[in-house]
């Protein structure tokens, strides 16, 4: 029987994987608790004590617990520690879905970050946009800044592809340096 797995390159070991280029370092962020909150975001803000707006594209998030806005009625809540809120429908008008296993997170920093962003998207990183969901490297991603670094969330199934793309982008940045 043909082994179709050979058609795809193996995913890197995210614990140790890094991309280094002049002025640019990329690595994976592991262990984050990620929740999708969908529906009426006002009661979510009241019950969770979190700000209900969330950062948009290239917006600046801070701290161990924050939210990125994905749509008019959807937030991605990210936390270093598990959040004490049950998954499922809440009668106040919103649903909580655990998505930690579904999204791979990457983090990049360095003075060449703008050159990296310019290769990934046509969106102007200096212009605000309400949603952090955007097309990056040809795939759907959630992109914002966290404590001065760039964070990218992608579907886990696309993480190996994005890593390959980022390795090539870093190579191009190095060649242009």
């Amino acid at each position: 029987m043909r082994d179709l797995a050979e058609k795809w390159s193996a995913a890197p070991d995210w614990q140790s994987a890094t991309i280094n280029a002049p002025g640019f370092v990329m690595s994976a962020v592991l262990g984050l608790d990620q929740l999708l909150v969908s529906g009426d975001l006002d009661p979510w803000a009241r019950l969770s004590g979190m700000e209900g707006t969330g950062v948009g594209a290239f917006g600046a998030a801070q701290g161990d617990r924050y939210a990125a806005r994905l749509a008019r009625d959807r937030l991605l809540v990210v936390s270093n520690a598990p959040l004490a809120i049950a998954a499922g429908w809440h009668a106040e008008g919103f649903a909580v879905t655990a998505i930690s296993a579904g999204l791979q997170v990457f983090e990049a920093e360095g003075p060449a970050l703008d050159a990296f962003i310019a290769r990934g998207t046509t969106l102007d990183p200096r212009q605000s946009s309400a949603s952090a969901a955007l097309s990056f490297a040809g795939i759907s991603a959630i992109v914002y800044r966290h404590d001065g670094k760039l964070r990218i969330h992608v579907d886990r199934g696309l993480a190996a592809y994005l890593w390959t793309w980022m390795e090539q982008a870093a190579g191009h940045i190095a060649a242009d340096d």
Binding site: G56, A71, T121, T122, L123, S129, A130, S131
Partner: peptide, 17 residues
């Protein structure tokens, strides 16, 4: 490339629509 205005997000690349 053309920019389309999403009522929620603002101007985005036409390929996102």
């Amino acid at each position: 490339m053309q920019l389309f205005p999403c009522p929620f997000c603002g101007p985005r690349d036409e390929t996102e629509f």
